[in-house]
Design a protein around this nucleic acid. Structure first.
Lengths: 204, 204
DNA sequence: ATAAACGGAATGAACGTTCATTCCGATGCA
DNA sequence: TGCATCGGAATGAACGTTCATTCCGTTTAT
């Protein structure tokens, strides 16, 4: 393989990634707008400007397409949560960063929220996807366990803690979205404080 | 209309209601298990032990069936929230009753939770259903507004408050359900306290 | 006897998926 | 360099299946 063929090979790989990403992006938009049974493969192909058969070069079937998309978005969310995260900062400050990064991600990418929450318990999301999803989540889970152990946060079951922290994020963004309200930064600051009030350790 | 025809008329109405309820019950079970596109009308008919055509005697189409079911379940949830509710009790106590009744409803009827949350933002849930849903919710919304006005709870936008209170209920029940965990009464008591901590008014 | 209720086969539209074919840039050869 | 050949990517018409809905003969109720 000479220099030229390497170059062309690279270009081909890039194109492949681009097309795969194009399919994923288009699918996300359509799924979040119309749901699973409202987005036929033919529509995804049309909106992406490609042939229907092409999708099957990149994904085994519709189910796999959605599973890949699910994992991809989960990864993006967790990534964005850790932007500006300082491991050495005090616990409450780190909580603040994680919580606000997360709600801001959903605020900026409402389609991701709709998609993730619509598909988290969907029957065609595979067991493999579920466990992969858990793996991606694990740093956050460890963060909660640390908080419990060091008595920064209340000694509650993990799922209760996640519920108290993640539940409001989903519901607040969804409600505002559904009623075409913009969430202000001030609202987010207050909501974060309230969430912290819910989980912070106190001896009373 | 003589006595007999009244009697028969009544019986007919009862049968009709029974069959309608049977269709709704069956639909709920199948939808929460398999989702919208996993529950064809033919399957609903089969599981209900009736013909597919019969369903169309009670509902105009599949969409209407789901919209009716949505409203019906919403109504049941709100009803059960107000069991044992004492208007004259202190605010925090009333909060306690409403919150625990609600989470207990979902605990006892997980299919209702799955269904409601899966369809709340589904495109085939009509605008009419959405506004009817809001109407059913209104006593709860008024309860929050009262709390804000009288400074029992924080002065936060309504959707933030709902998020802080309802969000955890959904997420906690869903998480435990998905991981086959039983929620204990103790967990619920603690979660309720934490939720109250999130929204309760404080001057700090 | 009459009419309403019912069941489930029939219908046709829509869907996911396949595959024979086309397209196009890379490669080999002169 | 110019031309022929090659091979994988892309295409979209076609296929078989599934589904919501309709239709009509049968059953049930009065």
């Amino acid at each position: 393989m000479n220099v030229h063929s390497v170059y062309y090979f690279m270009e081909q790989v890039v194109n492949k990634i681009d097309k795969k990403a194009l399919i994923l992006d288009t699918t996300l938009i359509l799924l979040s707008e119309n749901g699973f049974h409202g987005t036929p493969i033919s529509l995804i192909a049309e909106k992406a400007g490609i042939g229907a058969g092409t999708i099957y070069r990149y994904f085994k079937n519709k189910e796999e397409l959605i599973n890949v998309l699910f994992i991809e978005i989960q990864r993006r969310i967790i990534n964005s949560m850790y932007s500006g995260y300082d491991e050495t900062a005090p616990y409450q400050e780190r909580f603040n960063v994680l919580w606000i990064n997360m709600i801001n991600y959903y605020r900026k990418h409402p389609k991701d929220l709709i998609f993730i929450e619509q598909h988290r318990y969907a029957p065609y999301v595979s067991t493999i996807t579920r466990s992969e999803s858990m793996r991606i989540l694990s740093p956050v889970l460890l963060f909660f366990l640390e908080g419990k152990k060091r008595k920064y946060i209340k000694h509650l079951p993990l799922y209760t803690i996640i519920g108290l922290i993640y539940g409001p994020i989903v519901t607040i963004v969804k409600l505002n979205l559904d009623h075409n309200r913009e969430i202000t930064d001030e609202q987010i600051i207050h909501a974060e404080k309230a969430c912290w009030d819910a989980v912070k350790y106190n001896n009373i």
